[in-house]
């Protein structure tokens, strides 16, 4: 290689690298970098998240007609959850509490009745499991955005963590999904109380993402701006809009 070519190649690499660094900085400011952007699969995951954040800024999950509601929905509970289900079945739902803490002006604790006093929202959406199966149901709940608004969520907040009654099961979404009108703290399904097997008494419903983000048996919500606190529970991708 001639000296001229070397200089050209180095300048080109330098320009490319600084361009990429600048792009990453801009992307981060606009919330286009997912928490699992590092590692071997970081590039693909970042491309997926960034492009969907841009494409789905104002989009709504598909809603269906009443007659499309599945007659045979499937509640996916593993054999190792048997004991947990028994525990939950004995639980009086009147005693269920949902606490909200972290970056909010008014940390609070709500009963299901409190949540029902919020404006209730209905949606007929499809639950799509990452395994490949799906069903359509009508979900009733309080909009997470309303609940966050009442708690006085900080403008610096970036993520909403939600924890399950099931030990050690926490997941999280960004504010874009947390404030989305279809993201519901769900307490009803197909016109009845949400059955335990389907996540009752309270399930997070995030219909623009795969089912594993719709965590069952929610009892705690934490608002944070620290992506280190998200605590990956899964080997699965954090963003599941896919």
């Amino acid at each position: 290689m001639t000296r001229r070519k070397w200089i050209e190649a180095s300048l080109g690499t330098l320009a490319g690298a600084s361009g990429l660094a600048a792009a990453a900085k801009v992307a981060d400011r606009y919330g286009l970098i997912p928490p699992d952007s590092g590692g071997l699969y970081g590039p693909g995951e970042t491309l997926t998240y960034a492009s969907q954040r841009l494409l789905t800024r104002h989009s709504l999950a598909r809603e269906f007609r009443r007659e499309q509601i599945s007659q045979a929905p499937f509640c996916n509970t593993a054999s190792w959850q048997k004991q947990l289900l028994e525990q939950l079945n004995q639980f009086s739902f009147a005693d269920w509490r949902l606490s909200i803490d972290g970056m909010v002006a008014k940390p609070a604790s709500y009963s299901i009745a409190d949540l029902k006093s919020h404006t209730s929202r209905n949606q007929i959406t499809q639950l799509i499991c990452e395994e490949g199966w799906s069903y359509i149901a009508e979900w009733t709940g309080a909009s997470l955005a309303d609940v966050l608004d009442r708690a006085g969520v900080s403008p610096q907040a970036k993520y909403v963590l939600y924890s399950s009654f099931e030990q050690g099961w926490t997941d999280s979404i960004d504010m874009s999904d947390a404030l989305h009108p279809q993201t519901l703290l769900t307490y009803g399904m197909n016109g009845r109380d949400l059955p335990v097997g389907f996540g009752g008494p309270l399930r997070m419903r995030v219909p623009r993402q795969l089912g594993y983000k719709s965590v069952k048996w929610i009892n705690r919500i934490t608002i944070t701006d620290d992506r280190k606190k998200l605590g990956a529970q899964f080997p699965y991708a954090w963003y599941a809009g896919i």
Partner: peptide, 14 residues
């Protein structure tokens, strides 16, 4: 499915 889906989409982008 964890790493499989990561790999599937990374390869799909490529």
């Amino acid at each position: 499915n964890g790493w499989s889906r990561y790999l599937h989409f990374q390869a799909a982008w490529a």
